[in-house]
Design a protein around this nucleic acid. Structure first.
Lengths: 341, 341
DNA sequence: CTGAAAGCGCTAACAA
DNA sequence: TTGTTAGCGCTTTCAG
């Protein structure tokens, strides 16, 4: 029984001994960073294989200063405790980042709470911070440590950090509003989430500007991403009750959009004839809703792909880009906003 | 500008110097593993904060032998290169494992190719191997290194490894077959995937036994998970053409189930009246199909939760369990197998 | 082409 | 309560 089978890790020293060479020769055999005679290399490889040698990654990165690992921090606090909408969003982003990292042969670490001292910090060469808040503290912390950071969506208070993949909301949100307007909507209510991130802020800004241009009264409200369905229903009811109810609602999350559709149906309001409905993120709720709900897909896969590329470029010493990469969300018009005319 | 802002990591030594104490005092201030006077502790904390000190995780784990990180390897090779069905499956499992790890404050590493020497190995205390193959080489490699491993589904050739979360297929597959039989199916075709894992093997075994018991002729075929839709369509066509076409098909993946529904529709075959259809994994394809397709949900979230629990228990020194944990897949009967009678 | 040895930053045993 | 120091396993300079 060799050392590995016994549970004790095999070190470079044992391999060297077995092969009858020095530890530096073993090291160089694997790194290839200096010429080793074929005979020696064969002996070392054989010894390593027999012993089940696997270089200790901590020792290596202590020495080299690099781990070959990229971190991922998903900021939205409701990402983890999830309604299906949030779960789908979270899963798509995490899955896509993981896929992309693996495709490049890079290990990916999901970083646990940065601020919890009970939690060991992780050896990462750089970190992807997804959907940061305005003035994001975790982002600031990492930047303060001098760690290379790439963000998925910008910290809305620091929109110009160049190492970022951003979503270009204005044209898409305008297209959505124009579409609603073209279908006859004149009283459009925007229900944002309460998370202070780009996804909530940018569309709100675009909406305000659009209303001003059109000379329409802006109508906005908040619906926290953390609400339970019953609590959200409670808040939605009165919005549909009064005589001044909106003729279209744009709501941040798609499961609340589906909820609004239900509440509307219960009140006898027909969609899209009496009320149009759209969501600012897409999910199965929207696609399979009754009727299917118009939604903006945030192209998580593309965000992930570009973010990983950006990070790897950065770690290989690429120049700082002139500005963020911009991607365009994908507007998916569905029956909830399509009036037969 | 301090060292961190300058890009150079701050070490314990600098903190000690600044606080006017020894490095072991700094170490113990953070680890809390020996009493430190309040005054000293305050000075150290202040110095650390001012310098932006963050303990080097590689140094720590080199010394302690533990990293606090759990690895995750997803074995199915089609998990990454994905059709939507595989992407949903992969995303759900990865997302759920990540969520569960974070909930416990544990870092999670997606392990890149174990056998690629160009890829740095990762510092993990244990590893979750999901959906291993029969005689899985990666699993064997990790076990050979003496690393604590927990599997999600068993290596079908090593069904008794106790550190595993398994799916209890037989009763659910039987229930599905009984259901089809009760609806009148007598010529049931099972189209397995070609990945040699539990998900393909166990239902096949159950099917064979069920046919034997019922005195029915087993009809089986293969449809590789890696096929493109057109290629899969090519293979499916003849199955529906002959006079001895099956009256029910159980197919492994749900997107091929949806494909079969399309092909059947194109041939004028009505579902479920002339052909019943079921999938051995659920996805939006099945839920949103026309008609919606009966499917077995593999409860990825529950698998992930139990696997992470098992891993953390194992790492805290829990006793080896008597056997694997068994979970029951969730059979979701839908219109594709529901004949009006 | 190969070996000896320093040292990465930290923890923990031992000393005081 | 605090300080001194060995050494975790590796990479890399410097010698040969």
């Amino acid at each position: 029984m060799n050392a590995a089978a016994a549970g004790r890790p095999v070190t470079i020293r044992e391999v060297a001994e077995r092969a009858g060479v020095s530890i530096s020769t073993v090291s160089h055999t694997f790194s290839g960073r200096r010429p080793i005679s074929a005979a020696t290399r064969a002996r070392v490889r054989e010894a390593a294989a027999e012993l089940g040698y696997d270089p200790n990654p901590s020792a290596r990165s202590l020495r080299t200063g690099r781990s070959g690992l990229v971190g991922l921090i998903l900021r939205p606090r409701y990402a983890v405790s999830g309604t299906p909408d949030r779960a789908e969003t979270f899963n798509r982003l995490v899955g896509a980042v993981a896929t992309e990292a693996l495709r490049h042969g890079t290990g990916l670490i999901h970083v646990p709470d940065l601020h919890d001292p009970a939690v060991a910090s992780v050896p990462m060469d750089g970190c992807i911070v997804a959907h940061p808040y305005g003035g994001d503290t975790a982002l600031a912390e990492l930047l303060g440590r001098g760690l290379p950071v790439v963000t998925v969506e910008e910290d809305p208070d620091r929109p110009d950090l160049p190492w970022a993949v951003r979503l270009d909301y204005p044209p898409v949100v305008e297209a959505l509003l124009d579409h609603l307007h073209a279908q006859g909507a004149r009283e459009i209510l925007l229900l944002s989430g309460t998370e202070d991130n780009a996804w909530n802020r940018r569309p709100r800004e675009t909406y305000a500007a659009w209303c001003a241009r059109r000379g329409l009264r802006p109508r906005t409200g908040l619906l926290s991403e953390g609400l339970s369905m019953p609590d959200a229903a409670e808040l939605v009811q009165p919005l549909l009750a009064g005589p001044d109810r909106p003729d279209a609602i744009v709501v941040a999350t798609s499961d609340f959009a589906a909820l609004i559709a239900e509440v509307a149906a219960a009140r006898g309001l027909r969609i899209p004839e009496e009320l149009m409905l759209a969501a600012l993120t897409d999910s199965e709720h929207a696609r399979a809703g009754h009727p299917p709900i118009t939604a903006m897909d945030l192209t998580h896969e593309a965000l992930a792909e570009r973010a990983v590329e950006l990070m790897l470029a950065r770690l290989s010493g690429a120049e700082t880009p002139d500005g963020p990469v911009f991607l365009t969300p994908d507007l998916r018009l569905r029956a909830s906003t399509r009036r037969k005319s």
